[in-house]
Design a protein around this nucleic acid. Sequence first.
DNA 1: CAATAATTTCAATAAAAAATGAAGTCCCGG
DNA 2: CCGGGACTTCATTTTTTATTGAAATTATTG
Lengths: 170, 170
Amino acid sequence: MLEKSITLPEEAGKELSELEIEAIQMFINFLKLIGLPKSVGEIYGLLFVAPKPLAMDEIMSRLNISLGAASQGLKLLRGVGAVKATYVPGDRRDHYVADLELSKFATAFIKEELHPRMERALERIRRMEQLSADMTPEQRKATMMKIERLKHWLEKGNKMLPWILKFLVR
Amino acid sequence: MLEKSITLPEEAGKELSELEIEAIQMFINFLKLIGLPKSVGEIYGLLFVAPKPLAMDEIMSRLNISLGAASQGLKLLRGVGAVKATYVPGDRRDHYVADLELSKFATAFIKEELHPRMERALERIRRMEQLSADMTPEQRKATMMKIERLKHWLEKGNKMLPWILKFLVR
DNA sequence: CAATAATTTCAATAAAAAATGAAGTCCCGG
DNA sequence: CCGGGACTTCATTTTTTATTGAAATTATTG
């Protein structure tokens, strides 16, 4: 059976252009901020500047990332609405395009990270209020003051969120 | 040479109260959001509900964390303004108190994470504009449009930050 | 000033997170 | 329906990040 020449480590798909590299680095940095792994930033960065839809294997070979990373990264990006699959006639593969609406990331972050944590925090605060019931009056007073602070802060955050969202989305 | 009885894993300092546990878990979760390690959340959580200043070794033994983690965590928290060292008469050790102003974390995050990344992103965008100079007019047009989007979004974010800060700080 | 307690630092280790790629699943076109 | 490409999953490995604790440094105090 014939075998292609051994794949050199640095061979990969077409080299990335400088433009692509800048875009990719930019998104790696930004998405890291909201806790997304490097590979996701790479994929989105590449798609962001791509002049046409890219298939998964193109993404893999351009970025030198594994099948699994490409598949999972695209899944996440699709889930968040930051990438769309498009139909390309005469090609069996899915092709992907970046949604240029950056607010998708902010929205997803707020919905998936911030909100749940705030909810959880409110539960804990309620629990803390209960617990402070059996304390000496003195301790109780001090504790309640702190809890009030926490609540106040959370409420402030909660009030701000819709405003931020509206502002970001357009 | 005499040896103390073997230290049991679960021995440690005075057990944490339920209240302390709730507070600690809450802050672990919140601070994780802005990329701070668990130990930092633990320390802040403990200090937040503590009725009096705590020395580093008390923190260590209550939380069962190492000398290094305690020292580094406190250093970080002090750096961010979330914890203050107080003088306790007749005690050689430093004692620490939580600053209840939660906005300290938001401020630090914006200053230390968000702002630098935005600056860096703007640099990259400038570079991208340069690079798009030698492209076919068609490609160039499409690329410039994307770059405009990026800029627009960054500017929007930049305008929003001071507002958010003002809102959070009181 | 010693003596020693308190704290910081940092190389080594452990824990957590991300990437890999082989095995399995799901089509689509003949 | 079956053959094979496209994709997904997930156990394993790699990489990154956090924690540990011993050694070095910096006070404090008798």
